[in-house]
Amino acid sequence: EAHFQVQLEQLRSMGFLNREANLQALIATGGDVDAAVEKLRQS
């Protein structure tokens, strides 16, 4: 989780407030914030 701290903060600042969902999306996308946003929008 600490590995994705910067990305988690970016997602939070973009309005994605579900930390667990954000973390799962980042893990699934290897930390790619843009891909994580797409994944979160689809769910």
Rank of each mutant, 00 (worst) to 15 (best):
E1T: 07
H3Y: 15
V6N: 10
R19C: 11
R19M: 15
R41I: 05
A28T: 08
S43F: 02
I27T: 14
F4T: 07
R12T: 12
V6G: 11
L23H: 13
Q42I: 06
L26G: 00
E20N: 12
Q5W: 04
R12Y: 15
G15T: 04
Q24G: 11
A35G: 12
A36S: 12
L8V: 09
Q42C: 02
N18Y: 02
F4R: 02
L26R: 00
D34Q: 12
F4W: 06
K39R: 13
G30P: 00
A21S: 13
G31F: 02
Q10F: 01
Q7M: 06
Q5K: 15
G31A: 05
Q5S: 10
L40I: 01
E38Q: 09
E38N: 15
A25I: 07
L8K: 04
D32S: 10
R12G: 10
L26D: 00
E38R: 08
K39D: 14
N18S: 09
L26Y: 00
E1D: 05
F4I: 05
G15K: 13
Q42D: 13
S43E: 10
A25M: 14
A2W: 03
Q24P: 04
L17F: 15
E20K: 13
L8Y: 05
G30I: 03
E20D: 13
L17A: 08
V6I: 15
N18W: 02
H3D: 14
Q7D: 04
I27P: 00
E9A: 04
L11W: 00
A2V: 06
A28I: 05
N22E: 01
V37A: 13
S13L: 10
N18K: 13
V37R: 11
V6R: 08
V33H: 15
A21Y: 01
V6W: 03
R41A: 12
L17G: 10
L40N: 01
I27W: 06
A28D: 11
R41T: 12
Q7C: 03
L11D: 01
L40E: 01
S43D: 14
M14R: 10
A28S: 09
F16N: 14
T29P: 00
V6S: 15
N22Y: 00
D34E: 14
L23G: 04
G31V: 01
E38M: 13
N18Q: 14
N22R: 02
V33C: 12
A2G: 11
R12P: 02
Q5H: 10
E9N: 06
H3Q: 12
S43P: 13
I27G: 10
Q10G: 07
A25K: 04
A2K: 12
G15D: 14
R19Q: 06
L26M: 09
A21K: 15
R19P: 04
D32A: 05
F16A: 03
A2E: 14
A36Q: 00
V37P: 02
D34C: 08
S13K: 15
E9K: 05
A25E: 13
L26F: 00
A28Q: 10
L17P: 11
